[in-house]
Design a protein around this nucleic acid. Structure first.
Length: 569
RNA sequence: GGCAGCGUAGCUCAGCGGUAGAGCAGGGGAAUCAUAAUCCCUUGGUCGGGGGUUCAAAUCCCUCCGCUGCUACCA
């Protein structure tokens, strides 16, 4: 039996994430994790906050908090919001954990020992007013090429040329605005990525076809353009310290670059998970050596993260010279736009996770986002489209099906699964269709094709409505009660089925649907047997319980209100 | 500038060498169990423009136009 390891790109600690962040990483990872658990596979789903770096320091300063305290608060908030969204990680860790500190230093020592780290000195901009080195983009000045006076040190927004901050004319700090800055030499560790190009090429080529084109093309582009060695240390305070035994303490006081330690936290997080269960070594069989041979490892991320997972992190693992587990299936997503523009954290444009849950239950968002996941290209969120999908798919097609069957059962069959009659041609045809569709749906989930999986799920709900219309128990009951009993019994079995199939995507609603028939287990399993058996398992006479309205419809006035509140077109 | 992706019915998208598809929206009808929810039928596209390869192209090649993303010390 294969075990399933799942990680989603780590959300940065800097505030609540918007739906665009969610749809490309944590949400599909959760849907897939639930699907795997529903199939009875041993599954470990991990995520964590990515906490280090200068951006965190500045955000904490802005919030008037100590960095560690700021991160603790933000981490707790992200975990709470994720829980509320139904994100069922086995563990939600922190890149600042002791485990990750230790592991990051371990990888650095291995790389150093194996000769893949260079000590190099480079010129960095230092701000006397801010008492810190400035990242390139935090240096502002006049562009030497076009004369634009607010060019950033990494790139001029006006002429789009890539810049070096030391070339800016009259440079100043973007943090304080002070022009009291100077160029200082600073020593850093560089990871010799260029030595790994052949191995990376071979590894990436081995995944052509099972990774999305988006992923392999981005990865190959980096290799084709010539992989630069990469600085993996920074002159900031909030991070994993470089140990003194590397380069004879030449890097004293410096920390590792966030992009070095963040992916390592995938492993660190599993150590946190193991520690939390008092089985401190349990993480190892998921990651290391022959013990992890039966593990299939899935990563989920937005396209901005792809280079770091196809190049940066693999180099760390290769260079360590130890038998670490590499990703098997890497699922990358495009972006989702908001009402024709970008979701933007800095401009507070779009819908953020906490605000989303204030106005509607998590399942509405989960369904919509997965049904419209930006898999082949960027997708668009608009309030009108969102409301249309929720009202039609969830309220009308699924919710109303459950409602009409269960209520009819109450009014004409005393609220009990009716006995009498046997399945005939109509039922056999439905069973044949569902056998095909349920396995197609599972196949789409396995292939990480979420849009198609949800389209199939919806088609299954539609098949239920079609059947009910043909069976028409409300008509049959006048002349042929046994025939009506068959229709309702099948209808109730379908409700039971829908409660199972929907659980990975809309867990809370699936639980309520399941509860209409009987209490739901914690993990609602994906059907193992053929539909013929699955759709005949309810016991005649067992009571059913029509749920309250499963999905209330979104009204025009609400859409108007939300467009105003969140800023629409 | 370079690289990549996309451009298919009003909208959101699938198809990626063999007589144009789905969902929504629009039109007509059936049914009345149900959150006026469902079901059936149906209108609608010279598949961004042009050129080429092929018996055959939305599907392969070239070119042009448009949109988007990435471009490496913010993550």
């Amino acid at each position: 039996m294969t075990r399933i390891l799942i990680t989603s790109a780590l959300p940065y600690i800097n505030g609540v994430k918007h739906l665009g962040n969610l749809v490309g990483s944590q949400l599909p990872a959760d849907v897939f994790a639930r699907f795997c658990r529903a199939r009875g596979l041993e599954t470990l789903a991990l995520c964590a906050t990515d906490e280090h770096g200068s951006t965190t320091e500045l955000a904490a300063a802005e919030a008037g908090q100590d960095v560690a305290a700021f991160c603790a608060v933000q981490h707790a908030q992200q975990r709470a919001t994720g829980d509320a969204f139904g994100l069922s990680w086995d563990y939600f860790g922190r890149s600042s954990s002791p485990q990750n500190h230790e592991l990051t230093q371990h990888f650095a020592r291995q790389l150093w020992k194996n000769g893949f780290l260079d000590v190099r000195t480079s010129r960095q901009v230092y701000s006397n007013a801010d008492k810190r080195f400035l990242p390139d983009r935090y240096v502002i000045g006049t562009c030497p090429h076009c004369g634009y006076d607010r060019a950033r040190g990494d790139q001029c927004e006006n002429c789009t040329r890539v810049l070096d901050p030391v070339d800016l004319i009259s440079p100043r700090s973007a943090i304080s605005g002070s022009s009291d800055i100077e160029i200082r030499d600073s020593t850093h560790l560089f990871l010799k990525q260029s030595e790994f190009v052949p191995r990376l090429r071979e590894w990436i080529a081995s995944h052509e076809g099972d990774w999305p084109v988006l992923v392999t093309s981005i990865a190959n582009k980096w290799l084709d353009e010539g992989l630069h060695d990469r600085g993996i240390t920074r002159d900031v305070e909030w991070g994993v310290p470089v140990p003194d035994d590397i380069a004879d303490g030449a890097l004293k006081g410096k920390v590792f670059y966030v992009w070095f330690d963040a992916p390592i936290e995938y492993i660190g997080c599993s150590m946190e998970w193991a520690a939390s269960r008092d089985t401190p070594d349990a993480w190892k069989s998921w990651w290391f050596g022959d013990a992890a041979k039966d593990v299939t490892y899935y990563q989920f991320m937005g396209k901005d993260n792809i280079p770091f997972h196809t190049v940066g992190f693999p180099v760390t693992l290769m260079g360590a010279g130890e038998p670490w587990k590499f990703v098997d299936r890497l699922k990358g997503f495009n972006y989702i736009n908001y009402e024709g523009g970008k979701f933007s954290t800095s401009q507070k444009r779009g819908v953020f996770m906490d605000a989303a849950l204030e106005i509607l239950p998590a399942d509405y968002w989960r369904y919509y986002l997965m049904a419209n996941a930006p898999e082949s290209s960027d997708s668009n969120f608009t309030w009108d489209h969102f409301a249309g999908v929720i009202n039609k798919d969830l309220a009308d097609v699924l919710g109303n099906f459950v409602n009409r069957v269960t209520r009819f059962c109450v009014s004409r069959f005393d609220g009990k699964v009716p006995a009498g009659g046997t399945y005939g041609d109509e039922e056999q045809a439905l069973i044949a269709e569902l056998d095909q569709r349920v396995s197609a749906c599972a196949g789409c989930f396995e292939a990480l094709e979420f849009r198609k999986a949800l389209a199939e799920l919806r088609a299954i709900w539609v098949a239920g409505n079609e059947y009910l219309t043909r069976a028409a128990p409300w008509t049959a009951i006048k002349t042929d009660p046994a025939r009506a009993a068959v229709g309702v019994r099948m209808g109730l079995n379908l409700v039971h089925l829908f409660g199972h199939l929907a659980w990975p995507v809309i867990p809370e609603s699936a639980r309520r649907i399941h509860a209409a028939i009987q209490p739901a287990p914690d993990i609602i399993p994906w059907p193992k047997e053929a539909m013929a058996g699955f759709l005949e398992q309810l016991t005649p006479g067992q009571p059913i319980h029509p749920p309250e309205v499963l999905f209330s419809k979104i009204a025009e006035e609400q859409i108007a209100e939300w467009k105003l509140r969140f800023g629409g077109s």
